[in-house]
Design a protein around this nucleic acid. Structure first.
Length: 574
DNA sequence: GCCGTTTTCGGCCCGACTGTTTTCAGTCG
């Protein structure tokens, strides 16, 4: 069982416990455990398989949870959860997704109105029975009906690329106002998480009311959901919800820190403040009633004895320890990137020619690229067989002569077939400058076969890098069941690099596994997998995830100059 | 349910907004 699945069981358990009215700290313990497991680079199942393992060494895992994890790994089940599920109708989880409905209200609906399903809930609202309940009213009833629509329609997280575009549109509009002194996106979007559930925008304004009005009037805003003096929540036409908060100047840094999160990171921050006899909230750091700091984020971190921590690292995944020891990494940036080593052309499923891609890459300041079209197995993309590939490389060489100022590698994105052989013969692969091996088909194969395919590819002397290792597509397709520890060891042994695919729906390696690959000393290549000139702009999203993984420019192979990169490649092959 | 050079009990982060309340619980981030 994969870590995410184990975490999901604990999250569901926490939700049902909450409905039951259990001790809130007990509920939190399950949620904390879920986060710990989710953020673990190695598979919990592998940990359990090790002879003298100790799960209680993990943060937030004690004797009880360790036993529950063992049970899940061995049986695939969590009996107490199954028992708890039996006490509630299956639709409760969906009801909890409705904005405004939390565990207390849902429990009241179940107990007093005997609601069994989402359908029951709709009927009860329409009959006016919900409004009659104590603690409910007409407005609540109406908002439940609207929430039901919403939950059924979307309620999903959106890609970081989508969230970023929406946030920038709003922020740029607010910036037009003379009264707006500062405005910035906070939240998971600022932390550059791969998907965002909503948007948080923070502003300093001399006229908060006018700022609120401006947001409400923005063409992308579909509905104002809540509006106070300092806070407004709106729903955008895309379905994404956005919070705007207007704060006083002396609180801007504290508010930015607070609303950037993550929740887990902030809990540690406030605990550190407490330990120093201080109180930290979105208005600043306080000693009793006295304001101590809050104008900038750096001031807030300094007040709790830390250097400023980059937003991408704020997940309580070890950044506090690094900050305390003065060992925060100098994170890789987009400006560090010199090459892009995965892209397609009209030879297969790209929309631009070799020359157009080269010119577009050059215009973006890149010094070298690899043209890596598909191999024959990818028939729907018109994948290349050996003969067409050799001709394609000749065409690339012609472009090399025509376009100066950028180096172009003759590459290939070669499929690792379901039977663990490569889609092209060794003789043609040996002629390539750059070989990416990837899984496209048979992603649902059992773990053993997936591993066999990856390991066989790693052992092939012509393979330089494994591309998008899991094959996942965010929000639509889970990745293959990869044993990452084994993958990393083998990649290290054979000197093969690993790709962090920057395409916004892939971001694969993800941040957790990219960090683990770095720990193994494996060079990471951030590549766009561009299928058009515009696709080259995805590099920033790959860099974002690399930063979340704590990678420096030294960890990323394509920050090297072309000469240095070629040396690395030559060393790998010898 | 977890955790601990303030240890094995008694803590566990903090505030805004809403709707329903006559002073606050629930929800949310």
């Amino acid at each position: 069982m994969q870590n995410a699945a184990i975490a999901a069981l604990f999250d569901e358990y926490a939700e049902l416990l909450e409905l039951q009215g259990a001790n809130p700290f007990r509920v939190r313990a399950y949620r904390n455990a879920a986060r710990t497991i989710e953020n673990l680079p190695q598979s919990v199942a592998d940990l359990v398989a090790a002879p003298d393992h100790d799960l209680t060494a993990l943060a937030g895992i004690g004797k009880d949870l360790a036993e529950k994890i063992e049970t899940i790994v061995h049986t695939g089940r969590l009996p107490p959860l199954e028992e708890l599920r039996g006490q509630f109708p299956p639709d409760v989880v969906q009801m909890l997704r409705i904005p405004g409905l939390g565990p207390k209200k849902v429990a009241a609906l179940l107990d007093q109105l005997h609601i069994r399903s989402v359908g029951d809930l709709r009927a009860a609202c329409e009959a006016g029975r919900v409004a009659a309940l104590k603690g409910f009213g007409k407005k609540t009833e109406q908002s439940i009906l609207e929430g039901l629509e919403l939950v059924e329609a979307s309620g999903r997280r959106v890609l970081l690329s989508v969230a970023t575009a929406a946030a920038e549109a709003i922020v740029n509009d607010l910036r037009q106002l003379a009264c707006v002194r500062q405005v910035e996106v906070a939240g998971s979007c600022r932390r550059r998480k791969e998907t965002c559930g909503d948007l948080d925008v923070l502003a300093v304004s001399t006229d908060p009311a006018a700022t609120m009005v401006r947001l409400a009037a923005h063409p992308e805003v579909e509905k104002v959901l809540a509006r106070g003096d300092t806070k407004q929540r709106v729903r955008l036409r895309s379905g994404l919800e956005l919070d705007l908060r207007v704060v006083p100047e002396p609180s801007y840094g504290a508010a930015l820190q607070y609303f950037t999160g993550s929740k887990e990171h902030n809990i540690v921050m406030r605990r550190r403040a407490q330990e120093r006899g201080l109180k930290l909230n979105e208005y600043g750091v306080f000693e009793g009633e006295r304001y101590v700091a809050g104008r900038t984020e750096a001031d807030v971190y300094a007040a709790v004895g830390l250097p400023w921590i980059p937003p991408e690292l704020r997940e309580n995944r070890g950044e506090f320890e690094l900050a305390e020891q003065g060992r925060l990494p100098a994170l890789v940036s987009l400006e560090d990137i010199r090459g892009d080593l995965h892209m397609h052309t009209t030879a297969t499923d790209g929309t631009a020619s070799i020359r157009e891609m080269a010119e577009a890459a050059k215009a973006r300041g890149l010094k070298y690229i690899a043209i890596t079209d598909h191999s024959r197995r990818v028939t729907m993309a018109n994948g290349l067989d050996a003969a067409r590939l050799r001709q394609h490389w000749k065409d690339i060489e012609k472009v090399r002569a025509q376009v100066s100022g950028i180096e172009i590698l003759c590459g290939i994105e070669c499929d690792i077939l379901e039977d663990a052989t490569l889609d092209l013969e060794d003789d043609v692969l040996s002629e390539a400058d750059w070989v990416i091996a990837v899984l496209h088909y048979g992603l649902k194969q059992p773990r053993a076969q997936i591993q066999k395919r990856l390991l066989r590819a790693l052992q092939n002397p012509h393979v330089d890098v494994i591309g998008h290792p899991s094959g996942r597509l965010l929000g639509s397709r889970p990745g293959a069941d990869v044993d990452y520890e084994e993958l990393f060891r083998a990649a290290k042994d054979h000197g093969v690099m690993l790709e962090l695919n920057a395409s916004p729906q892939r971001l694969d390696l993800d941040d957790v596994h990219a960090a683990a690959a770095k720990a193994h000393g494996i060079p990471i290549v951030i590549s766009t997998d561009a299928h058009s000139e515009h696709g080259l702009d995805a590099m920033k999203f790959g860099v974002d995830q690399a930063r979340r993984a704590g990678l420096t420019r030294h960890d990323v192979a394509n920050t090297r100059t072309f000469a240095q990169f070629q040396k690395l490649l030559a060393a790998r092959r010898s």
